[in-house]
Nucleic acid binder design. Structure first.
Lengths: 186, 186
DNA sequence: CCATGTGAAGGTATTCACAGCC
DNA sequence: GGCTGTGAATACCTTCACATGG
């Protein structure tokens, strides 16, 4: 009988592994890297585990994020409620197109692009870049100058930034393009 | 003097490495895994290289893809022109919401969800799932039954599929959530 | 000479098996 | 008995240095 079935206070590495589709020793190895928060013969206390993971992932403090580029993708991101799950809050949106400035989307009013310079005093340290490829590097430069510390870039290109800035580039089309590679010819 | 500067027919691993921000030996090792298509003392013939990479990545044949879930994200994907770059073509869109069926978005007419059953005879082997988390597994089940071979899933959850089906899950909120982990506390 | 492709060295992540604790 | 945490074994990936070919 699995621990998870005995009650809801503890869970075993085995049960966790089944949930996410990996092996039990991977779970144990990974957790043990951050400390010993399991009990032999019993499993992991679920509340404690959730607390530890939140601490490791820095999920205990809500982070404010800004969106630059309110096109189709940007609008979709503004309307997406899922960021809260990970302690993230999109609190500002910017666009260089004057026709979009002032619009309300997903509860956020679109601001002029020049307003990004005030990000630091507004304590916003994360930015989402959803602008066309041609504008991506210039946008990142502006964000870096504004004191941003992390960037999620949706433009399909490499962007240069100082090493202290963490940049994650997500090329959605390329993700889709990966699929045929794993599929038997046809 | 770099090969790339001598003309435009050949390029060295060194020059290539600088372009994408890696080391020259990584370029050579990776290429050599798929065969020897460089010339010692000269570099890589650019046309040949492009041809080989397209072959490896299966980019020489255009793949048809279907979109399921025409919400904000789905609409953004339909309007996004970048898929062509990778030999992908979104040729159909489906939604379970009757109010969306029939609409034209990005040149595609939204069809009823039940129409996915005809995907195989329409020779569509890739699918993009942009439905709410609760509907993701059921959607994937339908797609698998319809003979789909690869799925790009935007719902923030694991989905189960037979091993022959390649599933890539892309949790956009989680990508953004990764950033604080790499940033010095604050 | 110049740049590739590769065997070898070194390091890192996976996988296993089991001692120790509940 | 059951489950964790960990050292040992294994596989993998990265990095280097150089022999080889144009």
């Amino acid at each position: 009988m699995l621990s998870a079935e005995r009650g809801c206070d503890h869970i075993s590495s085995q049960a966790l592994a089944e949930c996410v589709g990996v092996n039990s020793w991977q779970i144990r190895k990974d957790f043990s890297y951050f400390g010993d928060f399991g009990t032999p013969g019993v499993g992991y206390n679920i509340e404690r585990l959730a607390r530890e993971i939140k601490k490791i992932l820095r999920l205990h403090v809500i982070k404010k994020a800004a969106l630059v580029g309110v096109g189709d993708l940007g609008s979709a991101l503004l309307a997406y409620p899922g960021f809260r799950t990970y302690g993230l809050d999109i609190v500002a949106a910017f666009d260089s197109d004057a026709r979009k400035v002032g619009k309300m989307i997903g509860g956020i009013q679109v601001e002029e692009i020049v307003q990004v310079s005030a990000l630091e005093e507004r304590q916003i340290s994360l930015a989402i870049v959803a602008v066309p490829r041609e504008a991506a590097q210039a946008t990142v430069d502006q964000l870096v100058a504004a004191g941003i510390r992390g960037v999620l870039n949706f433009a399909p290109c490499k962007v240069i930034a100082p090493k202290r800035i963490k940049v994650i580039t997500l090329d959605i089309a390329m993700e889709l393009a990966r699929l045929p590679y794993y599929m038997p010819a046809g």
